[in-house]
Amino acid sequence: MTGRRGDYLEQIRRGGADLPPDLAAAFASVPREAFVPDGFQRRDGTWVCPADPEYLATVYSDDVLVTKVDNKIPVSSSSQPSLMAIMIVALRVAPGQHILEIGAGTGYNAALLASLGATITSIDVQEDVAVRARTALARAGISHVRVEHGDGYAGSSGDRFDRVIVTVGIGGVSPQWLSQLAPGGFVLAPVKHAGTHPVLVVSGPPEGPVTGTPVCPSGFMLAAGPLTADHPGAFPFPAGPLTDLLPVMPPRFDPPLGEIQYRDLWYAAGAWNRRASHVAVAGREQGCLALLDENRTGGAVIFPDGSIHAAGSSDQVEPAAIILDRWISAGRPPMQAWRVSCTLTGDPDAPIWAPDAWELS
C-alpha cells in the first residue's frame, strides 16, 4: 500500500505495534477523519480544523487527537493508533465475538473492532461524546456497534461478553465487568500504577481471586466515578511539578535507558515502593519517575540515565537507590514479567479490583 494510508500503517508499526493482516486492513480502510469531523486539539493547545492544510496529515499520524476539553483539561480523544493496535492485538479479537468497550471516545476504536468481525457495545459517561461517536460510526458506514450513554462501572446489564476493553485510565476493575464475561473471557484495561496506566489483562470471577498480567505502558485520561476511587493502597498524586532538583547520585546507564526500558524500571518501582509516581520536571517534555515524600511536594527523581535528583526532603533518595540496585540485580525485568494480584477496595458501595501485590514470574 502506498500513499497516506500506507505511511499511516508504517507509523503505527514504528510505534511498536505488530499489525496482523486483518488489523492492518482495518486501519487502512476505516476513515479516521470521519471520527473527528469538528477537528481536534494539537499538543500545543491550538485547534486543527478540517479546512486546515495539515488536517489529514495529522489525522493519519501516530498521535492522539484530543476532541473535547473542559477547563483546559482533555476529557475525550482518539487514542494514539499504535497503542490502540497493541491493545487490539492483546484483545485477541475473533469474528463473532461480543465485546464491551468502556469509553466510546470518538468511536474509532469500536469501528476497528467491528471491522475485525466483532459486535461492540460501547458505553460512555458523557452523553455528548456518546452521541458524536454514534453519529460518526453511522457516517463511516460501520455496523455492529451500539453506543450507550451510561456509567461504565455497571457495564451492560443482561449481556454477556467475550472481552471487555477499557479506553480510559482506571484505578481498578469493576466486578460488574467480570460478572458479565463469558467463560474464558478477560478484561483489558489501563490500570493506575505509579502515576501511569499500564495496560493489564485481568481475569477472575467477580468475587475473586482476580489476577492480571501487564501488556504495555500507556497513559490515558482518567475515568470518572468509582472506577478511580481513592483507596489505602493507591499511589500518591503529585501536588505539582518538582522544582529546585539537585543531583545526589550519578548516572548508572550509558547510554540512558530507552523509553521502553525506562517504563520497565518504572513498573518495578511501583511494585516495590508505594511512593512511586509520575511527576513533571522543568525542562523535560516527558514526565519522570519519582518517589514522593509525604506532602507530595518533594522527593527523589530517577532519570533515564539512572541518576537521582532530590527536591526538598532527602528521605526518598535511599529508597530510590535501592530500587535501581534491585532492578539491575534482577536482570532489568520487563513489565511483562510481573504477575499481579488484586484486592477489592475503593468505594464500599461500588468497589473495584485494584492491583495490590506483584511478583516476578
Rank of each mutant, 00 (worst) to 15 (best):
G3H: 07
R4F: 05
R13T: 09
F27R: 04
R32A: 12
A34V: 02
R42S: 05
V48C: 09
A51K: 10
A57G: 15
V64M: 00
K68W: 14
D70H: 11
D70G: 02
I73F: 13
P81M: 11
M87A: 08
M87V: 07
M87H: 10
I88H: 05
A94L: 11
H98E: 09
L100G: 13
E101F: 05
T106V: 01
N109D: 02
S122K: 07
V125T: 06
V125R: 12
Q126W: 07
A138L: 00
A140R: 00
G150H: 00
G158M: 06
R163P: 06
V166H: 07
T167Q: 11
S174F: 08
L181D: 06
G185R: 13
K192H: 14
H197M: 06
S203R: 15
E207Y: 01
A224F: 09
A224H: 10
H231N: 11
H231K: 08
F237Q: 14
L242W: 01
L246I: 12
V248R: 15
P250M: 08
Y262S: 04
L265A: 01
S277F: 01
V279W: 03
D293S: 14
R296V: 08
A300G: 05
A300R: 04
F303Y: 10
P304Y: 06
A310S: 10
R326H: 13
I328Y: 08
G331S: 13
R332F: 11
A337I: 00
A337M: 04
R339V: 03
R339K: 11
D349T: 12
I352S: 12
W353N: 08
P355W: 10
E359D: 13
